[in-house]
Write a protein that binds this DNA or RNA. Structure first.
Lengths: 225, 225
DNA sequence: TCAAAAGTGTTAATAGTACACCCATGA
DNA sequence: TCATGGGTGTACTATTAACACTTTTGA
């Protein structure tokens, strides 16, 4: 086409996914024990190569679906990792994305086929290449974004208790907060609404179930917790 | 090497730079009036292709130096732009970076050779491809980062008055703030230190010149303005 | 009846915002 | 002497943080 492009080199372009899940008050990542070279036997993020006719964002979605069977998952771009020797096999430029999934809803068979396991975020194994760095950056970004965007709900079931929500925010921020202060903030948030339903599984007394009203949020696009 | 890679397509990978400058109380971007196809005659960001043996970050630095003659410039990655048809000539995956430079210190001849001009940030021309989107994302990111990282000083001379500093923060945040409140915040910041020097160019009375103590900042890595 | 989680208000401390006048100087 | 930008303090408001006991109910 234009001569402008043709003297320049071309590169393999990949995507890698930092897949967050939440259960039992703890954040986890879905990691692969690699079945192939390079890095066979090592732990890595789920990744894949960008294809012709596919945007980078779409490649990330495809790769996530290949592993989890899920569509319409919340994903955000973390950044480009473009060091020359980051992959010892060949030069590959990779874009990291984080994904937030409901840990109860993925396709267990696909995950098993890929040799993938949930690992608690504070007990992660050593990861190959620069995947460690991707995870650090993804955690940081997710934490920042969760303060001003209602992304945490992607990690919870549609109906959740306030204790679950508080545990989630504590896990994301790596702190603990006072229960009364937390619930006061929730009460001030017009998009977190109480349902008449009660979850009896976590206590004898039972806890009210809440949901996030996404429709109303989309009208205002303001969120704070 | 590994067969793993070889079936996958390869892509041109580029970088584009959103170059911020500050003078007369206004933020500007350094933009090119393109001398070549595709997009000849249109306005664009300064860009270039990643080369073999060069990291993506290094490509961004090189491209910035090609235009401005400056080294050691503050740059941050804004994100990957990977839509299939974003460049009508060929498929190019581009990573945007923003750069903050002291508007008094670039190489004017190089800039002229590249057909580049400073354009006020609120009077930008229409940009080609998805460069508009890159600029929006860069402005947003820069604004966010300037609240918690001492990046604004890259846009100022080493010695600056408090009025200049206030004008800068107002330009970044798109607001105006009370002078006394602003100066109170500055006084609480241990890294912004008064020098005995006075700038008589902006007023009859003269204004004290301040500097940012980068050494002390690096020891604490905490910043707030 | 008691263990275990749910639920509930008030007060103090801190941070942020609003506001107006005098000062120093060169032309 | 006066026009211009530099410099300063206080009172009010809003937000955030600290803190402890009662309720419900199934085992």
């Amino acid at each position: 086409m234009f001569e402008y492009y043709s003297h320049h080199p071309r590169f393999y372009v990949a995507v890698d996914c930092i897949i967050f899940g939440f259960s039992q008050g703890e954040l986890s990542l879905l990691l692969l024990k690699r079945k192939f070279e390079p890095g066979q036997g090592e732990w890595s993020l789920m990744g894949g190569f960008v294809q012709e006719g596919e945007s980078v964002d779409d490649a990330a979605k495809r790769v996530l679906t290949e592993l989890t069977g899920l569509n319409d998952v919340y994903m955000e771009q973390v950044g480009v990792f473009g060091e020359v020797d980051r992959d010892p096999g060949e030069r590959v430029i990779s874009t990291a994305y984080y994904a937030l999934i409901n840990i109860n809803e993925y396709d267990r068979q696909l995950v098993e086929e890929h040799n993938a396991y949930w690992m608690k975020i504070d007990e992660l194994p050593t990861l190959l290449f620069d995947h460690q760095e991707m995870v650090v950056k993804a955690r940081q970004l997710m934490k920042t974004q969760s303060a001003t965007m209602p992304i945490g709900f992607n990690l919870l079931p549609e109906l959740f208790t306030l204790t679950q929500l508080q545990n989630l925010y504590e896990a994301i921020n790596g702190n603990t907060v006072d229960k009364r202060n937390f619930r006061k903030r929730v009460a001030e948030n017009p998009f977190i609404v109480k349902t008449p339903l009660v979850d009896k599984s976590g206590s004898r007394r039972g806890a009210s179930l809440y949901k996030f009203n996404e429709e109303d949020y989309k009208k205002s696009l303001k969120f704070k917790l």
